[in-house]
Design a binder for these strands. Structure first.
Lengths: 232, 232
DNA sequence: ACTGGCTCACTGGACTAGCCTCTTAGACAG
DNA sequence: CTGTCTAAGAGGCTAGTCCAGTGAGCCAGT
């Protein structure tokens, strides 16, 4: 979870006690072999064991609740949600444990489908937004910039044009990881121009309402901007 | 966010103050036209305005932080994250605002790819898990059950066999929504048997390491189990 | 004019103590 | 046996207090 990924220095994010508690409670759940439906120890008890106040523990429990790990019930206690898997899932995502190839894989899967849907469903407004993104990127590159802003706009416009909120949500979920890939790729000399050209091919296929061509163009594009990563 | 979706009654989940605060703060951000990087009012100030204690407000801020809406910095304040979009995104997901067709769309996109990857990458253990899931489902159906458990096991086994943690995470993210679709579908008379047969076709393609056939079989399967929904 | 160090007001971080409401099991009366 | 009541224990929330980080502004030294 960084901020200001642009050239600036990383602002050290100070550790928060509740974050540490979340880790410890997660570890406890695992070590104690707790299963969905089981109860966590009482707040007063848990707070004492962990050496923190109830107020702080309450924050950790809120975090776990938002993460979908537990369900706190007034008068009963904190019960483990039926799918504790999402815990490690989200944790893994946030910690960037996922390797780059897998991210590219997920991205191409989602964006390939989004491109096809965009070709089928795009409205005039959607097309205008896509063209605008292309203009922005072209202008950025002309100014000697990498065109990251236009690039981002373009992919957002495609996502919007697909008119599928669920897929859009999944894209948002991995957006941060993709952003890193994108920035590195556009840093390569000559890359922005190539990237812009493949964007144009995608836009043309969507304009022509050709789903198969749109998917193909999108996959080729992602292949282009991703291969730099795979050299590692 | 329900619990015990199985036949049981819904346990009324009592409203929590912090949840209400999250809504109010979200509304405030919108109404005050705050942009990424802007600061929220100070905790003491905000707590007083909302008529709650600082401890409770702190819980709401933790929730917003976990949701990715804000980033609380010691000594500075709560700054809006650069992508406030994910806020409404996750909120929308949790509230099931997404319509069924879109869920099916996302599911087929992901599982189609997962089936192809499984065909390419499955190990002997993966195959054994898939076969085991088929056995479980067959036994359940023989006992007059709907086979939901075996069904779930099967799709989990496919996901595991694809060996892509990012895609697996995305699947987990929409798993709850899919569960509902699955249960309804298998409730139809004759459906469990049809579903089992199409599972076998998927398994055969994965056994034969034929990605294209696996994707095709998976898409046909999802089509089969989903059409009941689309009748609405 | 700039640099560095200092201070201070303000911000969040965390704890404590206490009282409230809710849940549940068990005692008890019918 | 059944329904009711009660008390213990759970979480919800508040108020007050102190600690720690931030950053603007002042001021002396260069």
């Amino acid at each position: 979870m960084e901020k200001t990924a642009r050239a600036g220095l990383e602002r050290v994010s100070r550790p928060r006690l509740y974050e540490q508690l979340v880790e410890q409670i997660l570890a406890y759940i695992e070590s104690a072999q707790l299963r969905p439906g089981d109860l966590l120890p009482a707040e007063r008890d848990l707070a004492e064991r962990l050496g923190v106040s109830r107020a702080t523990l309450a924050q950790a429990l809120v975090a776990l609740e938002v993460l979908g790990v537990i369900d706190v019930q007034h008068g009963t206690g904190a019960v483990l949600a039926r799918r504790p898997s999402v815990a490690s899932v989200i944790k893994g995502l946030r910690e960037h444990q996922s390797r780059l190839p897998e991210i590219v894989e997920a991205r191409s899967t989602l964006e390939g489908k989004l491109a096809a849907l965009a070709a089928e469903r795009r409205t005039g407004d959607d097309l205008a937004a896509i063209d605008n993104a292309l203009d922005v990127m072209a202008r950025e590159i002309n100014d000697g910039d990498r065109g990251t802003h236009g690039d981002e706009l373009f992919h957002q416009a495609i996502t919007a044009a697909a008119h599928s909120s669920v897929l859009a949500q999944l894209m948002a979920f991995i957006a941060e990881m993709i952003l890193e890939t994108r920035m590195e790729s556009l840093g390569q000399p000559g890359r922005p121009e190539q990237s812009l050209a493949s964007h144009r091919r995608i836009a043309d296929a969507i304009r022509a309402q050709d789903p198969a061509a749109a998917t193909e163009a999108m996959l080729a594009h992602i292949d282009l901007v991703s291969d730099v990563e795979l050299l590692r």
